[in-house]
Simulated assay, not measured.
Amino acid sequence: MLKNWIKTVVLAASLMGASSAFALTEGKDFKALSKPMPVAVAGKQEVIEFFWYGCPHCFSVEPAIEAWAAKLPKDVNLRRVHVMWDGRNDMEGHAKIFLALQTLGLDGKHQKAVMKAVQADRIELRNEAKLFEWVKSQGIDVAKFKAAYNGFSTNAQLKNLATMTRDYQIDGVPTFIVNGKWVTSPSMVGANDANFTKILDELIAKDRAAPKKK
């Protein structure tokens, strides 16, 4: 009798788990990219987060994304890309901060800190004097940061950000690309920030379940 009761509990739990999954609707929860794009690391699942340090919603969603990213399996690669829209010179200073931190391998570690400085503390990090002062306060080597920030390759990297923004047809942020195939965002889904990460999980699972090309 006890064994039957245990089976019943296990079955009920599995059904609850299944019912908690999102039934994704294309066109509502996500849409397909018009042109599939390659992932950065072959053999890995990929999620790209397009963002802007000056975007309030990017700041609000970041704690949920960081908590989600900390639990990702090893075969899922999260990439962050600072958006660069044509004609938006106000973004260039923020994008250079992202590129400098990325060059130093510090972009992930300081992602939330930069957003807090811009969004909550209202520090104008596009002003270089204030930026370098803030960099020092974060314990970052200022000389190394300046070298990366003003590096010869920075302009080429800025152009690459602009190219990616166009190629992925990013018209708002935050926007997420899953496995170079699907695009979604909290505004598209209409979900709060914590629930939105479940959409990402479902799209990753969708790709895992898809038949693999031989």
Rank of each mutant, 00 (worst) to 15 (best):
F145W: 07
L125M: 06
L24G: 04
Q157L: 13
V114Y: 06
K28I: 14
W5L: 15
D75L: 08
L106P: 06
A129K: 15
A40T: 10
A67Q: 10
A156Y: 09
P73A: 14
P56Y: 01
V178S: 02
M115F: 07
F30Q: 06
T165D: 00
L15G: 10
T175G: 00
E49L: 06
P36E: 04
P73I: 11
K136Q: 13
E66K: 08
N89Q: 15
K116S: 09
E202V: 06
S153L: 14
G190P: 11
R208C: 05
V81N: 00
L78R: 12
A147R: 01
W85R: 00
K3W: 11
L131W: 10
W182V: 03
N195K: 11
M1I: 13
F132E: 09
K31R: 15
S185V: 05
F51D: 01
N160S: 13
T8E: 13
P56K: 06
F145K: 05
V41C: 04
G93S: 12
K31E: 05
K28R: 14
N77K: 14
K7W: 12
W182G: 02
I177Y: 04
L106Q: 12
G87N: 07
E202N: 04
A147N: 06
A100M: 09
K71Q: 15
N89D: 15
T184F: 04
S187L: 13
L33N: 00
P56F: 06
D90F: 09
A67P: 05
K130R: 14
A67L: 07
G54L: 02
A147H: 05
N155Q: 15
L78T: 09
K96I: 04
F176W: 01
I199W: 00
M164R: 11
D121K: 08
S137E: 11
S60E: 14
V83A: 08
D207N: 13
E62K: 02
N179K: 02
K130C: 02
T184M: 01
M1K: 12
A210V: 10
V178G: 02
L158E: 07
Q138Y: 05
G43D: 00
D107G: 06
G172M: 06
R79D: 09
E26T: 04
K44F: 08
T163K: 11
V39P: 03
S14Q: 06
M37W: 05
D86V: 08
R88S: 03
K159H: 09
L131Q: 08
G180W: 05
H82I: 05
A205N: 13
L101F: 10
V135L: 08
T163S: 14
A32H: 08
A143K: 08
F30N: 03
G108C: 01
V41K: 14
S34C: 04
L11V: 12
K130L: 14
V39T: 09
E128M: 08
A113T: 08
V39M: 04
D193Y: 15
L104C: 05
L33V: 01
R126I: 13
E62A: 10
